[in-house]
Simulated scan of single mutants.
Amino acid sequence: MKIALGSDHGGYNLKEAIKKYLEEKGIEYEDFGTNSTESVDYPEFGMKVAEAVVSGEYQRGIVCCGTGIGISISANKVPGIRCAVVSDTFSAQMSKEHNNANVLALGERVIGQGLALKIVEVWLNTEFAGGRHERRVNLIGDIEKKYAK
């Protein structure tokens, strides 16, 4: 599995902790920025990660900002992305198992590092259940196609 990572300044420290976690687990990743806590605009980094995942080169993406909200909204604007903002392990599991989320968004100012890393672990180790959920995920794709220009 290859992971695309990105954050703004508000999620930079959490992204760095996730990088260390991925390295310890031997999981390949690429960091799409930012590279410091200097103020930047989160939409740029949400888009970069989302485009990397949609390209097929990366199987999943993880994005971080202060709350996880802004960067997830940005990522979700890229057709084919299902980015879930998650603050607990149950939601992490369900976002992948039922919704086939291909990008995970975390808020550095919302959850502690320990919980965030547990969320990442659960999300990365959960597979999409398919079945009845496949139809629903396909319906999400149909909505996306309806509004694509």
Results as ranks from 00 to 15, higher is better:
57 E>T: 09
58 Y>L: 07
58 Y>H: 12
59 Q>W: 00
59 Q>K: 15
60 R>T: 07
60 R>L: 15
61 G>K: 09
62 I>Y: 08
62 I>R: 07
63 V>M: 09
63 V>E: 04
64 C>H: 03
65 C>M: 04
65 C>H: 02
66 G>E: 06
66 G>D: 10
67 T>M: 13
68 G>V: 09
70 G>L: 09
71 I>C: 05
72 S>F: 03
73 I>L: 15
74 S>A: 15
74 S>G: 13
75 A>H: 09
76 N>Q: 08
77 K>T: 04
78 V>H: 01
81 I>A: 02
81 I>S: 01
81 I>V: 15
82 R>D: 03
82 R>V: 04
85 V>W: 00
85 V>D: 03
90 F>Y: 13
90 F>G: 00
91 S>E: 03
93 Q>A: 13
93 Q>C: 07
93 Q>M: 14
94 M>A: 14
95 S>I: 02
95 S>E: 03
96 K>T: 11
99 N>L: 10
99 N>T: 06
99 N>V: 06
99 N>H: 10
99 N>A: 10
102 N>E: 06
102 N>F: 02
102 N>W: 05
102 N>L: 04
103 V>T: 09
106 L>I: 07
107 G>M: 04
107 G>E: 08
109 R>A: 14
110 V>F: 11
110 V>G: 04
111 I>R: 01
111 I>S: 04
112 G>K: 08
113 Q>K: 15
113 Q>A: 00
114 G>I: 10
116 A>I: 14
116 A>Y: 07
116 A>H: 10
116 A>R: 04
117 L>A: 09
118 K>M: 11
119 I>V: 14
119 I>P: 13
119 I>S: 05
119 I>A: 06
120 V>D: 11
121 E>N: 14
121 E>D: 15
125 N>R: 07
125 N>M: 02
126 T>C: 06
127 E>A: 12
131 G>S: 14
132 R>Y: 07
135 R>T: 08
135 R>G: 11
135 R>W: 03
138 N>V: 05
138 N>S: 14
138 N>L: 15
139 L>I: 10
140 I>M: 13
140 I>T: 11
140 I>C: 09
141 G>V: 05
